[in-house]
């Protein structure tokens, strides 16, 4: 099986889908780059290089560099989706969605419901998220709980190159608006990715590891930290299950509850801020539906309720890590022998 980077996996997904369906277009700021300038065309291929090569393959009508006008081009993507295209809009940083919330929340997410089920809005919005790049408060947030809160949106957070490709293909083929969030520190991670096209269904958690002692539920980059924590804990004789829900909406509640019931001890790792975050949401689901199976309180490992800081030592303290995850698991193990 070929080894590919997370970035390459996403790029392949876009190539596959643009190749098979002429209504798929991509648009965003510098998704090609260099338009109107004297130098190289497709100069950037996206701020993170994910859309590199699409301009040459599919041309400027379908690979559209936009003005720095998120309201206009995200809203245009919504309008195009509802009139017959499958647009994939790229926002460099999820933080910038502050200037186009209306187009996502009040327009794209609501069309189907408020038009009585007659609208189909196959709209994908890709954005990077996540702290750890010394980019401070406006370029580092993990805003997926906000999107998850909005009915009408689907929210995807891939953690591996394999998932990135299959989930993006599903997002493009899906007939509902999808927010697709890419942790920028995962772009260079490498894993097995088939050459062919494949779609991973939404609402299907990935169980990366099955252990009997505790269940760790994590999203995106935190899945890697959870895996690191299991290695630390295995050496202590604590065997953990690791669940990556892959999508926060729809959420695979069945797998979450089953694995919680199997172990009776749950740690939820969420890079987002804690209030109304995924950790809080999943805790409530488990507490409501699997209370009898719990052997210890549910533990949440999240960022603090602060913006993302700039200084390296502060940012390191902000992000959950394997050590904190392992410590939380130990606490659940020690709660009631």
């Amino acid at each position: 099986m070929p080894q590919k980077s997370f970035r390459q996996a996403l790029n392949e997904a876009l190539h596959h889908e643009m190749g098979r369906d002429p209504t798929v277009i991509v648009l965003g700021e510098d998704i090609a780059g260099g338009a109107g300038a004297s130098g190289q065309q497709d100069a950037w291929g996206g701020a993170f290089g994910v859309t590199k090569g699409l301009l040459g393959a599919f041309g400027p009508l379908r690979v559209r560099d936009t003005p720095i006008s998120e309201s206009a081009f995200v809203g245009a993507a919504a309008g195009a989706a509802v009139t017959g295209l499958r647009p994939v809009a790229e926002i460099m940083f999820v933080d910038f969605l502050g200037v186009c919330f209306d187009q996502i929340f009040n327009q794209a997410a609501k069309f189907r419901y408020m038009f009585g089920g007659k609208a189909v809005t196959p709209f994908v919005l890709r954005a990077t998220y996540g702290a750890g790049t010394r980019s401070a408060s406006q370029h580092s947030q993990a805003l997926y709980p906000i999107f998850t809160h909005v009915p009408g949106l689907k929210v995807v957070i891939p953690s591996s190159p394999y998932d990135a490709k299959g989930l993006l293909i599903q997002a493009i083929r899906d007939n509902d608006p999808v927010i697709f969030l890419e942790n920028k520190l995962l772009y260079d991670t490498v894993g097995e990715v088939p050459d062919g096209a494949y779609a991973i269904p939404f609402g299907e958690a990935n169980v990366l590891r099955e252990g009997g002692d505790a269940t760790i539920i994590a999203f995106g980059r935190m899945v890697h930290f959870a895996q690191e924590a299991t290695a630390i804990l295995a050496a202590e004789g604590i065997d953990c299950t690791v669940v990556d829900p892959r999508t926060t909406s729809p959420l695979d509640e069945d797998t979450i509850l089953e694995t919680a019931e199997e172990t009776g001890r749950v740690v939820i790792v969420d890079e987002a801020n804690p209030r109304c975050g995924m950790a809080a949401d999943i805790s409530s689901i488990i507490a409501e539906n699997a209370f009898g199976a719990l052997k210890a309180p549910i533990m949440k490992v999240t960022a603090p309720h602060t913006p993302v800081p700039y200084a390296p030592n502060l940012e390191a303290a902000y992000l959950p890590d394997a050590k904190r995850i392992a410590e939380a698991v130990r606490k659940t193990m020690a709660y009631r022998k």
Partner: peptide, 25 residues
């Protein structure tokens, strides 16, 4: 008819999108 709209200024980006559909297709 792409919808009446409860948001003042909600329509212009949507119309651009519909026009983009025509242009691409």
């Amino acid at each position: 008819m792409l919808g009446a709209n409860g948001i003042v200024g909600g329509g212009p980006p949507l119309a651009c999108g519909a026009a983009m559909t025509a242009q691409v297709l």
